[in-house]
Design a protein around this nucleic acid. Structure first.
Lengths: 135, 135
DNA sequence: CGGGATCCGTACCGATACTG
DNA sequence: CAGTATCGGTACGGATCCCG
């Protein structure tokens, strides 16, 4: 997740609103967790398996933030061993629907984008300088 | 942008595809630049004014990456003083359309989210620990 | 089982200064 | 005008160890 904690400063109003959304799901693991928790209550360990590659730390951290934003509900069952379940809220499921447009876009242009990258890199000797990234 | 350069490792296939898109526009300035360049050719300095708060460095960097991904076309007019114009490609304009769903979502739930945050912070003494962020 | 605490690398981004 | 170069801060994220 980018470090966009600061106020919305972009000139265009629309850009500002989109950023609000991106700031919530732009993180590396947010979407994956949200999708996994959309099917119904899911336990911590189960999430750890379903969201491949995530570390325990990032799982905890991302869960906390999603809970804080009201995208996830955390329910603790005071048993031994402990049982904690996470569920996506209706708001989060709506978000999921809004993301399909973005998914379709990525699908449609996947090939075009890698072609553009390949062409660019061929002309300019390798990817953009170091401090730059994938964006 | 987040440091999501690595392969898509999330379990769900959909999550993977969304990430491809987010990795391209998740950056702090990408959307703002794309919107400004959607109206037609726009010059470097004009972009610097329109995308409020951006530094020259980040403008250049983000422009390069957007160009590399085929979302922006850069045209240089060999005159003095130099004149460089950027234009959003059709692919980028399609993206813009896909983002409105996300914008609507943010608008609809803006209040609910801040309420959730306020409630959470009241119960848990302040925002999530330090290393955590806005996601 | 479901975390929390700590250490640490790197990505991201801002400020500033210099240039064809 | 349209950049490039350098420096430095912070935030993001991984690894590892510890705990009720």
């Amino acid at each position: 997740m980018t470090s966009q904690k600061d106020r919305c400063t972009s000139g265009q109003v629309g850009a500002c609103t989109v950023r609000e959304a991106l700031d919530r799901v732009g993180g590396k693991w947010s979407i994956g967790i949200l999708i996994a928790a959309s099917a119904g209550p899911i336990r911590f360990t189960e999430l750890e398996r379903r969201v491949e590659g995530i570390s325990r730390r990032m799982l905890t951290l991302t869960l906390r933030n999603l809970e804080r934003d009201g995208l996830l509900v955390r329910q603790v069952h005071p048993t031994v061993p402990p049982r904690v379940e996470y569920t996506a809220t209706p708001m989060a499921r709506e978000l999921h629907e809004s993301l399909v447009a973005l998914t379709r876009w990525a699908e449609r242009h996947r090939a075009a984008i890698s072609a553009a990258r390949a062409a660019y890199d061929r002309e300019h000797q390798g990817p953009v300088a170091k401090p730059t990234q994938t964006f």
